[in-house]
Simulated assay, not measured.
Amino acid sequence: MRIVVSGTHASGKSTLIGDFSAMHPEFEVLPDPYELIDGAGDEPDAGLFLAQLGISARRLLEVERGARVVAERGPLDFLAYLAALDALGRPSRGGRSIRALELTVAAMAHVDLLVVLPLSRDIHAPDDEDPELREAMDDALLELTEDPDLVGGARVLEVSGEPAHRLAQVEAAIADLGGS
């Protein structure tokens, strides 16, 4: 079972993955690609998002069918950030470059379950978390998850509610897919 947990920053991804991995130590956790970039700056820009898209896509391409993996963020997250930069009129290199799209499509073909955490009023992020970018990314991500060419054969599951309820929704989806 290859799972990707997607959502804008401060949406509860890390909490959900932590809760999930505590119950399922047999799953390998792939961290947020941001953690794998040396010297990443504080200001998000198109270059940073493209680098993270590449990392997230390459690691999904390397995961074999039948592996038990849960990844914090996938390439759709970074396409959404690039689209958000465009929507906000911030400098970007175009959120839908051919190479970024091709890489995303190829990587998403290796995902069984895409768990999406839409923005919640229950999770508040401080102003230094760029609420404008956060909301624009959320809008873009939800739109991208409706494109069957981008999500491939992955089942898309939007989860909401308290952490325990989110986890229960993921557990039910995994059972439906025959993964537990």
Rank of each mutant, 00 (worst) to 15 (best):
R59L: 14
L50S: 04
V63P: 02
L142M: 12
T145N: 11
G47V: 12
R73I: 05
E102M: 09
E132L: 04
L113M: 12
R65G: 14
I98T: 10
V115D: 00
G74S: 12
L103D: 03
P131D: 11
E129Y: 03
H110D: 09
G95I: 01
A106I: 06
L150I: 14
V151P: 01
V116Y: 02
D45F: 01
A51E: 15
E43K: 15
G74K: 05
L48H: 08
R68D: 07
L150S: 02
E72A: 13
L48R: 06
F49R: 07
P148R: 04
L142V: 11
D77N: 13
R58W: 15
D127Q: 06
R90K: 03
A51C: 13
A46S: 13
R121D: 09
A46Y: 10
A100Y: 02
E146V: 00
L119S: 07
D42K: 09
G54R: 15
A140P: 09
D149A: 12
L150R: 14
R68A: 04
P126L: 07
P148N: 03
L113V: 12
D42V: 09
A87L: 04
E64C: 05
P126I: 00
D112G: 11
R121A: 12
D128P: 00
D147P: 00
Y81H: 03
T145H: 01
A57P: 00
L79K: 05
T145I: 10
R121G: 15
Y81M: 13
P131H: 02
A109D: 14
V69G: 00
D42T: 06
S97Q: 11
L142C: 06
L50E: 02
V151W: 01
M137R: 08
P126M: 02
I98C: 06
E135H: 14
A51S: 10
L60N: 02
P118V: 05
L76H: 11
D127R: 08
E146G: 07
R93C: 12
S120M: 03
A136E: 03
V111M: 00
L119C: 06
L101Q: 03
L48W: 00
R58D: 14
L142Q: 04
L103C: 07
V63M: 06
D149Q: 10
R68V: 15
P118L: 04
P44C: 01
E64D: 11
G66S: 04
L142W: 04
P118W: 05
G74I: 15
F49W: 06
V70S: 07
L76Q: 08
A125I: 06
G94D: 11
A107E: 03
E143Q: 12
L60Q: 13
S92A: 10
H110P: 00
A136G: 01
E135L: 11
I55N: 05
I55T: 10
E143K: 09
E135R: 14
A140F: 01
V151M: 03
R59M: 09
R65C: 13
P131C: 00
A107R: 08
